[in-house]
Design a protein around this nucleic acid. Structure first.
Lengths: 334, 334
DNA sequence: TCATTATACGTAAACGTTTACGTAAAGGTT
DNA sequence: AACCTTTACGTAAACGTTTACGTATAATGA
């Protein structure tokens, strides 16, 4: 691989001069500039970002650690993030944790070693202690959609409790009182917060909580399907179901239809996230919309600002607004 | 940030010794090992991958350049790729080109500068010349789903012509003869190859080609919708539609339904890719299944092997098998 | 004409690792 | 006792940049 030294030699100048035309960091005569450009061309030269990174302590690289890029929510989020950091010339490492603690920690260490300039993390299992080592190392971190609402970290999130509340209230407004809940694992995900909102809505409306109306499972299509089948196997059926994520809601939809029930005729269904797919199903699913792409953008903006100002001490907390989107899958109780 | 020097100093040894315990590359007495481990612990030390990369000329990093991570096909592919390189300790940079030439080239240069160990690329606009510079720089490249079937590059792909042929033949077998085509831009995508398959099937079955039965557009939901509306605005309607990608097929589905026609009653519809969503729609869409995840794995395997053996000279070409999946959206012509 | 200042570029150290060599001390061999 | 091996670690160069200084030449002013 050809280096700056080769270029300097061929152009008959010092490597300093080459470096300076490379970065436009001091005046170089047109003549010499041309010689250098030509040399770079004929030698097929590309500067080494790793050598540069060693010297400048900037890698122009970000990392994003999410459960699964295959989940449309995180794909959208990631895209939003990338689109804005890309404009500033950053590349991004994406890591799939599958919500497994050892993986989260392993990736955290690997990207630390990579000396990335910033990290966005959707923390599932990882605890604050594991993260504080990172910020001590002066790496900027922003947490997303997190239940770790800690003032020591930048956070971009929505009000998940309010979101769960709104979804439930929407069903209640339609007359439902027997409302099933299909939920991600309570302790690890934002599902737990949405569950709190669910409880709050029930309470405020004087509806007693029924344990057998809730089911907990992995946040996947399959998970949603299994949880819903479980709900529907009880002797007392819900008239509406709130799934705390759209991928689970899609599973719920199939489960409901598989047992021969109609949506929304027999059972209303509302999800969470507003991934593209749920607006294309028949019936189209009601849901709580999160500004996925926008949240990615916000995370990027926070990191870029911290990096440019080298201020790793201040903390930002942006909570974005969700929206209940009533489509065809929720209807008034007959 | 603490360095190997700090650790060496605190442990009262040379940096060489620290390096050796770090990498397990020569014997160090238990006693000294312990001192060093403790020092690393108390100093919160993590080795710098960038310094290491400069010295060893290996970054333990791969890059993948795809049109859009938001497209489920590429998300799945990426996941397959990441899952296998992850086992070997590689991180991966993902870049969204949006099939824009300048972006493809820009990313190619950026990752080159990053000295990634390997690249997988879904080339949309980029030409062979742009790539040969990369391989000259001894970076391993594998192309995926490419119409650049060039012996100078590693390729993992399916037989897109055959795929297009099979999809069309499936419709013909059902009695259709007026078959519409909804296609990505012909010159830039694998859609072009599938289009060839379409033509071949028509020809072999003695069906004349009709120009006004084909429409070309961006490979998105919207693109599929617009193309299909265009087809349906002609005075002679097709009895079946082949969309060369599932995301376009989803748009086609909505378009057909929007003009009040039934699938498959009035029009049969078949897509390409078998993304998860099309098996959940009503009716479920017929499609040509690609082993997305598996293709990602294959790409990774090729790169890893080339990297381990430092042989950037040999080329591999693996063509994976597709499968026609007949679901509810295709039916016999009445 | 000589000192001063501008102009345009060069020298060399530093960034944090790895690794080819080198070496001091201890143990073995004759 | 002298020499050779082995053991366990240290020295220093190199990787490819950036950047604080240094410097030769030309231009300017008196």
């Amino acid at each position: 691989m050809t280096t700056i030294k080769d270029v300097a030699q061929l152009a008959n100048v010092s490597i300093a001069t080459v470096s300076h035309v490379l970065n436009g960091t001091r005046f170089v005569s047109k003549e010499v500039q041309l010689r250098i450009m030509n040399a770079m061309e004929t030698l097929n030269y590309q500067p080494s970002a790793v050598a540069r990174g060693l010297r400048t302590k900037k890698t122009n690289t970000m990392a994003i650690i999410i459960p699964d890029i295959t989940n449309p929510f995180f794909a959208d989020f990631t895209r939003g993030f990338q689109d804005v950091v890309d404009q500033k010339g950053f590349l991004v490492l994406v890591c799939n944790s599958d919500r497994i603690l050892t993986r989260e920690i392993r990736f955290l260490e690997m990207i630390w070693q990579q000396r990335v300039d910033g990290v966005v993390l959707n923390p599932a299992m990882v605890k604050v202690e594991d993260l504080s080592r990172l910020v001590k190392a002066r790496i900027s971190v922003v947490l997303i959609g997190s239940q770790i609402d800690n003032p020591d970290f930048n956070v971009v999130m929505i009000d998940n409790v309010k979101g769960g509340f709104d979804a439930t209230q929407h069903l209640i407004d339609l007359g439902h009182r027997k409302i099933g809940l299909v939920c991600g694992l309570l302790n690890t995900t934002s599902g737990g917060l949405r569950y709190q909102g669910y409880l709050k809505a029930l309470e405020e409306n004087g509806i007693p909580f029924q344990d057998d109306l809730t089911a907990e499972g992995p946040i996947t299509y399959e998970g949603g399907y299994q949880c819903t089948r479980q709900l529907l196997s009880k002797n007392e059926l819900p008239t509406a179901v709130f799934a705390t994520s759209d991928v689970m809601a899609l599973g719920a939809k199939t489960a409901i239809e598989d047992v021969g029930l109609q949506i929304p005729g027999d059972i209303s269904l509302i999800g969470f996230d507003d991934i593209p797919e749920v607006s294309r199903t028949r019936p189209r699913l009601s849901t709580i919309a999160q500004p996925k792409y926008g949240m990615g953008q916000e995370a990027a903006i926070i990191l870029l600002e911290q990096i440019e100002n080298k201020q790793t001490n201040t903390r930002k907390r942006v909570v974005m607004t969700h929206k209940v989107i009533a489509r065809e899958s929720t209807a008034a109780l007959k």
